[in-house]
Amino acid sequence: MKGGIAAVFAILAIISLVVQPGGAVTCGQVDAALVPCISYLTGHVDSPSAACCGGVKAVKGMAETTADKRACCSCVKAAANRYADLKDDAAQSLPTKCGVQMDVPISRSVDCDKIN
């Protein structure tokens, strides 16, 4: 009986970590949101898709606190560096093309620690 109760509490603890509201932003979340933008960012299409812009808006929504903004920035920077053919001008224009005011730049060279 004690083992069963302990197992239930362990499972609940793990679930609370996974679905903790207001928790830290993960690169998995940021990457998933921005995957639809890859074809635009690499120059294969001339404008971002609706799904891409939805992802940009989602990232903006994730980046509420300074810590979240810096985490998103680090994730975006890491993702940008994985794509050798990423077009810097497309990356810089993405938020504007999607009609989103971003506090997190999409850049390979930004210093994320300077974001407030």
Rank of each mutant, 00 (worst) to 15 (best):
V25L: 11
P21M: 10
A67N: 03
V18T: 12
C112R: 03
V45Q: 04
C75E: 01
C75S: 10
V76H: 03
Q101Y: 13
D46Q: 08
K87D: 00
S49E: 01
A63M: 09
A50E: 00
A71I: 06
T26P: 09
S49T: 15
D46H: 15
T26D: 00
V104S: 04
M102F: 12
C75N: 01
A79H: 06
I11P: 02
A32V: 10
A6F: 14
L34K: 01
I115A: 04
Y40K: 02
S16N: 08
L41P: 01
A67I: 08
A78Y: 13
C27L: 10
K57N: 05
T65M: 14
S107T: 06
I115G: 02
A58I: 07
A7M: 15
D89T: 08
I106L: 15
C72P: 08
Q92I: 15
V35M: 11
A7F: 14
S107Q: 05
I14Q: 03
G22Y: 13
I11K: 08
V110N: 01
S49P: 06
Q20I: 06
S93W: 07
A51W: 07
S93I: 07
K97E: 03
I11L: 15
T96V: 09
S107M: 10
I14L: 15
A84S: 04
G4I: 13
A58M: 10
D111L: 07
P36I: 14
L17P: 00
A90K: 08
R82N: 08
C75F: 11
M102Y: 10
A71Y: 06
I11W: 10
F9A: 09
S47A: 15
Q92G: 05
A58P: 02
L41G: 03
H44D: 02
M102Q: 05
V25S: 03
T65P: 00
G99T: 05
Q92T: 15
P105D: 01
D89H: 13
A51N: 06
Y83C: 04
M102S: 13
I14A: 15
G61P: 03
G61L: 11
T42M: 00
T96D: 02
L94G: 00
G3S: 10
A13D: 03
P95S: 04
Y83V: 06
P95C: 05
N116S: 11
D31S: 13
R70K: 12
N116Q: 11
A90N: 04
V25A: 06
A90Q: 05
A91Q: 02
A13K: 06
C72A: 15
G99M: 11
C73S: 05
D89V: 14
A78R: 13
S107I: 08
C75Q: 09
R82L: 11
